[in-house]
Design a binder for these strands. Structure first.
Length: 812
RNA sequence: GCCGGGGUGGCGAAAUGGCAGACGCAGAGGACUUAAAAUCCUCUGGAGCGCAAGUUCCGUGCGGGUUCGAGUCCCGCCCCCGGCACCA
C-alpha cells in the first residue's frame, strides 16, 4: 500500500479493471430478488454533466451498489433521450446537425459518468434516436391508433415561433414555450395527431392513491388532471328551433340564478346566432381575442370584457329568456366552451354582470342563516333560496336533485369534466420519430404503416431547419413523402410531422429489460421479471409531463395485455435541485457551471462523490458550494492512514474490546438504515463518527472485522479507494462483490443509558442508569442528586412524568 | 389569488413531542518543522458569574396557544423557493 493517496492513479486503474471484468453487467440469477433502479432518461446536452446532475447520479449509484451487496439482482441501466426539440434546437444553435451532435454529446455524458465512478450496465445502453429504438416507438403509436387512442383533429394549438412547432399544453409554461421561457406562445390552426389521454384521466387519478410518490408530485398530478363533478345541461336558443347552448357547471344547484349565458369567442354557435345589429361588435371582439397573446388573455388581473350577441337562451328552470354574450374569460378548450352566468354564486360571473348591468339573483343563502355578502358572489355551499323546487335544500342535495330532474326532463345529466386535455403529439420538426401514417390519394384515407414495414426511417437531411409554415421540413423530401398506399397500392403521401420527444420516454423503461430485441419492443418474460421499476429517481420538473405520459402508456400496455402491472413506477423519489453558488440555475450562458471534470481533477472522484452525498439531504435543494470537498478528501486520507497503519502492523486478526465491537455494530446499523432511507448525508456522518473512534485504537485493538467492515461500508460511496483498501487487506476479488455487513442486535443494545432529569421543564441533571430502569429507581436516584436538590430549593414535587430510558420530569 | 415545500451557529447541516446544533467546513490556540504546507491535539451558538471545577440566563423567521416538556403539534403573520393561475 502506497504511503500517499493518489486519486488519479487509483481511479483510472480501477475503472479500467471494472470494465475489463465487466463488473457491472446485470446479474442473471433468478434465485436472487430483483431490483430495478432507474434515473430519469437524460437528454445529453452539449454542456455536459454538471456537479448538480451528479447529485442525482451519485446517490443512485450508491443505492445500486448497496442493493447488489445486499444480495439483489440489480438492473441499473442508462440511455439517452436524444430525439426531440432540445437536441435539435441545440444542434441548430451550434450550426451543426443532430446526427453529429447527439452521439458526441452522449459519449461525453457516458465519459463523465464513468470518471465519476457510476456503475451502469452499458451493454444495455439505448438511444431513442436510433432506428432500432424508434421502430418500437412507432409500433406503440400504431398500438394507440389501433386502440382508438390516437386521432387526428383540427384545432387551435399552441405555437412557438422560435421552435416553429406546435407544443403540448404541458409544454406551455406561464404562457411561454418550455424551451424558450422568454417567448410567448400563440395559437395556430393545424390538423394534428392527438393521444387520448383524457380517456385515462380517471384511472390516472385513482391509481395515484396506490403508489409511493412524494405527496407534492401526486398533488400536482391531481391538480393537472383537475377532475370536477357537476352536470352538463342545455338551454334552447330562442328563435333557433333545435339549437341549444350546452354548458358544464359544477353548481347545477344554482340554475335558478342563471341570468345570462357566455360563449367563448371562438364558439361555433357565435356565427350562427349573432344578430345583424350585433355582428360588427361581436366580430371585432372575437378577432381581438384571437390576436391577444395568451398571457394577456389569461391574466386574471384583467377586467372582464365581453359583447352581447343579440341572441337569447331560454332558462328552462326560471322560464325566462336570458341574453347570450361572448367573453374571453370563457375558454373554448374547457368543457363545452360555454357557461351559464350565475353571478350571485360565482365571483367571475359577478364581476361580469356588475360591469354590464346584468341581473344578479341570489339563489344560495349561508347555511348558518347569516347575511349573505352584498358586494361579491356567495360561492360557498349553503341553502337554496329563490329556486323553485330546490328551496330549502342544502347545496349537495340540490345538486343531485337538479341532475336527476335534468335527466328526467331531457335537459342534461350529471357529468364529469377534466382540466387535462388530450396530448397533441405532432411536431412540425425534423429531429423526431416519424409518425408511421400514410394518406392515400385514392379512397383509403388515413392508413397506418404495416408493422412489418417499420421503422419509417427519418431521411437524412442537410437542411433541416423548421420552416415555420406549419409543415415539417420532411415535407420537402419527395423520396420520403411520396409512397404507395399499403392498402390499395395506389399513390400516397406520408405523414411528415414527427412525434413529440415525450413519446420516446413514455416506454423506455421497458426497453431496458430487453434492449436488443429486434422482434418486439420487449419480451414478455423480461418485462415480467424486471418490471415495474423498483425505485425511480428524477427531478420534480417532470411531474405533469413525462410522468403522466409514461403512466398512461403503461396502462395502455396493460389493457393490451402486454404487461401485468398498471403503474410503471410504484416508488418515485425526487432529488433536490442543486443551484449554482450564486443561487441561480447553472447554465453555460451565466458562466456558473461547475463540471465534475474540474472537481475530479482537483480532488478525485471519490472525494467529489462523498461531498455530493454529504453536502445536503438527497431530496433537498441546495446551492453548490465547493468549500466542503477538502473535508471529504481529508476523510479519505484519514481512512487511508488508518488502513495503512493496520496493514503495516501485519493486518492482525486482533482482539477488539466489547466497546469497540458495540461501536462497530452500531455503525453498521446506522449506515444500513440511513442508506435504505436515502439519508446519505447522515450515513456518511455515521462513518465519519466511526472513523473518529477507530483512529484512536491500535491495530490489534481494532482487528480485522472492524477494518474490513469499514471498507465494505465505504465501498458504495467511495468505490475506487475502497477497492484499493480491499486489495491492501489481502483480497483478490472486488470489494463490490462482498456481502453487506450485518449487525448483531444484541450488541447494538446498550446496558446503560442517560436519563435526563427535568424540573419544571428545564434539564437539571443527567443520570446514568441501567437500560429499562423503572420509575421508582430513577426517582430515588434523582431526588438524591445534588443539582436536583438545589433546583427544587425545598419545594415538594407535585407530579412526576417518567419516560423509560429517556427522561424524568419533575413538577414542583 | 390558490396549492405545495422551506426558514436552526460565521457556513453546509443533525435532531420517533423528551439533552438543540451530531457530522463537516471555516476560525482560534497548541504540537511537529529552520520555516511553510500537510498532519495531529484542544477550543468554537450568544450573554453573564467564577481563579477554577463549574454555573446561570437567552436562543430554531415573528406573535400567540396546547403540554410537565415544542425546532417538532395548533392558530395568526412575515420572508424565500416551486407549481397552478378566469377550468365554469
Amino acid at each position: 500500500m502506497e504511503e500517499r493517496y493518489d486519486p488519479p492513479k487509483i481511479e483510472a486503474e480501477w475503472q479500467a479493471e471494472w470494465a475489463r471484468t465487466d463488473l457491472y453487467r446485470t446479474g442473471d440469477d433468478p434465485a436472487r430478488p430483483k431490483f430495478y433502479l432507474l434515473e430519469m432518461f437524460p437528454y445529453p446536452s452539449g454542456a455536459g454533466l454538471s456537479v448538480g446532475h451528479l447529485h442525482n447520479y451519485v446517490p443512485c449509484d450508491v443505492i445500486g451498489r448497496f442493493k447488489r451487496m445486499k444480495g439483489f439482482n440489480v438492473l441499473h441501466p442508462m440511455g439517452w433521450d436524444a430525439f426531440g426539440l432540445p437536441a435539435e434546437n441545440e444542434a441548430i444553435l451550434k450550426g451543426s446537425h443532430p446526427t453529429e451532435t447527439v452521439p458526441r454529446y452522449a459519449a461525453n455524458f457516458k465519459r463523465q459518468l464513468t470518471i465519476s465512478g457510476c456503475a451502469y450496465d452499458w451493454s444495455r445502453e439505448i438511444n431513442s434516436s436510433e432506428p432500432e429504438y424508434y421502430k418500437w416507438t412507432q409500433w406503440f403509436f400504431l398500438l394507440l391508433y389501433k386502440r382508438r387512442l390516437a386521432y387526428r383533429a383540427t384545432g387551435a394549438q399552441w405555437w412557438c415561433e422560435k421552435c416553429g412547432t406546435i407544443l403540448a399544453n404541458e409544454q406551455v409554461i406561464n404562457g411561454c414555450c418550455w424551451r424558450h421561457t422568454d417567448t410567448p406562445v400563440g395559437k395556430k390552426d393545424l390538423e394534428q395527431w392527438y393521444i387520448k389521454i383524457t380517456d385515462y384521466a380517471d384511472r390516472l387519478l385513482a391509481d395515484l392513491d396506490h403508489i409511493d410518490w412524494p405527496e407534492p408530485i401526486k398533488l400536482m398530478q391531481r391538480n393537472w388532471i383537475g377532475r370536477s363533478e357537476g352536470a352538463e345541461l342545455g338551454f334552447p336558443i330562442t328563435g333557433h328551433p333545435g339549437k341549444e347552448v350546452r354548458f358544464f357547471t359544477t353548481r347545477p344547484d344554482t340554475v335558478f340564478g342563471v341570468s345570462f349565458m357566455v360563449l367563448a369567442p371562438e364558439h361555433p354557435l357565435v356565427a350562427k346566432i349573432t344578430t345583424p345589429e350585433q355582428r360588427a361588435a361581436v366580430d371585432a371582439y372575437a378577432s381581438d381575442a384571437r390576436h391577444q397573446s395568451e398571457i394577456e388573455r389569461m391574466s386574471t388581473a384583467k377586467e372582464k370584457t365581453g359583447v352581447f350577441t343579440g341572441a337569447y337562451a331560454h332558462n328552462v328552470f326560471t322560464d325566462k329568456d336570458i341574453p347570450i354574450w361572448i367573453a374571453d374569460y370563457v375558454l373554448m378548450s374547457y368543457g363545452t366552451g360555454a357557461i351559464m352566468g350565475a353571478p350571485g354564486q360565482d365571483q367571475r360571473d359577478y364581476e361580469f354582470a356588475k360591469k354590464y348591468g346584468l341581473e344578479i339573483p341570489r339563489v344560495t343563502a349561508p347555511a348558518d342563516r347569516s347575511a349573505p355578502p352584498v358586494d361579491r358572489a356567495f360561492t360557498e355551499p349553503g341553502i337554496a333560496i329563490n329556486s323553485g323546487f330546490l328551496n330549502g335544500m342544502p347545496t349537495a342535495e340540490a345538486i343531485k336533485t337538479v341532475a336527476k330532474y335534468s335527466q328526467d326532463h331531457e335537459i342534461g345529466r350529471a357529468a364529469v369534466s377534466y382540466r387535462m386535455r388530450d396530448w397533441g403529439i405532432s411536431r412540425q420538426r425534423y429531429w423526431g420519430c416519424p409518425i408511421p401514417m400514410v394518406y392515400c390519394k385514392n379512397e383509403c384515407g388515413v392508413v397506418p404503416v404495416p408493422e412489418d414495414q417499420l421503422p419509417v426511417k427519418l431521411p437524412p437531411m442537410k437542411e433541416y431547419l423548421p420552416s415555420g409554415t406549419g409543415r415539417s421540413p420532411l415535407a420537402n423530401v419527395p423520396e420520403f413523402v411520396n409512397t404507395t398506399c399499403p392498402k390499395c397500392g395506389g399513390p400516397a403521401e406520408r405523414e411528415t410531422d414527427t412525434l413529440d420527444g415525450f413519446a420516446c420516454s413514455s416506454w423506455y423503461f421497458l426497453r431496458f429489460a430487453d434492449p436488443h430485441n429486434d422482434r418486439e419492443p420487449f419480451a414478455r418474460s423480461a418485462a415480467d421479471y424486471w418490471l415495474p421499476v423498483d425505485l425511480y429517481v428524477g427531478g420534480a420538473e417532470h411531474a405533469v409531463m413525462h410522468l403522466l405520459y409514461a403512466r398512461m402508456w403503461t396502462k395502455v400496455m396493460f389493457d393490451a395485455r402486454m404487461i401485468s402491472f398498471n403503474e410503471p413506477f410504484p416508488m418515485l423519489r425526487n432529488q433536490g435541485q442543486v443551484w449554482a453558488a450564486d443561487g441561480r440555475r447553472m447554465s453555460k450562458s451565466k458562466g456558473n457551471v461547475v463540471t465534475p471534470d474540474t472537481m475530479i481533477e482537483k480532488y478525485g472522484a471519490d472525494a467529489l462523490r462523498l461531498w455530493e452525498l454529504f453536502m445536503s439531504p438527497f431530496d433537498e435543494a441546495t446551492n453548490w458550494n465547493e468549500s466542503g470537498i477538502p473535508g471529504t478528501l481529508r476523510f479519505i486520507t484519514r481512512v487511508w492512514a488508518m488502513i495503512r497503519r493496520y496493514v503495516e502492523a501485519g493486518s492482525p486478526q486482533g482482539t477488539p474490546s466489547e466497546e469497540t465491537l458495540k461501536q462497530t455494530h452500531k455503525t453498521i446499523e446506522k449506515v444500513t438504515d440511513h442508506i435504505e432511507r436515502l439519508r446519505f448525508n447522515t450515513a456518511l456522518a455515521a462513518l465519519m463518527d466511526h472513523l473518529n473512534y477507530v483512529t484512536r485504537l491500535t491495530p490489534a485493538d481494532m482487528g480485522r472485522f472492524v477494518a474490513e467492515s469499514f471498507v465494505v461500508m465505504l465501498a458504495p460511496m467511495a468505490p475506487h479507494v475502497s477497492e484499493e483498501f480491499w486489495r491492501a487487506l489481502g483480497h483478490r476479488t472486488s470489494v463490490h462483490l462482498e456481502p453487506w455487513p450485518s449487525f448483531d442486535p444484541k450488541l447494538v443494545r446498550d446496558e446503560m443509558v442517560t436519563v435526563v432529569v427535568q424540573i419544571n421543564g428545564k434539564v437539571r441533571d443527567r443520570l446514568q442508569v441501567p437500560v429499562g430502569a423503572d420509575e421508582s429507581d430513577v426517582r430515588e436516584l434523582a431526588l438524591k442528586s445534588e443539582a436536583v436538590i438545589r433546583h427544587l430549593a425545598g419545594k415538594t414535587p407535585t407530579k412526576f412524568i417518567f419516560v423509560k430510558d429517556k427522561m424524568l420530569s419533575i413538577v414542583a
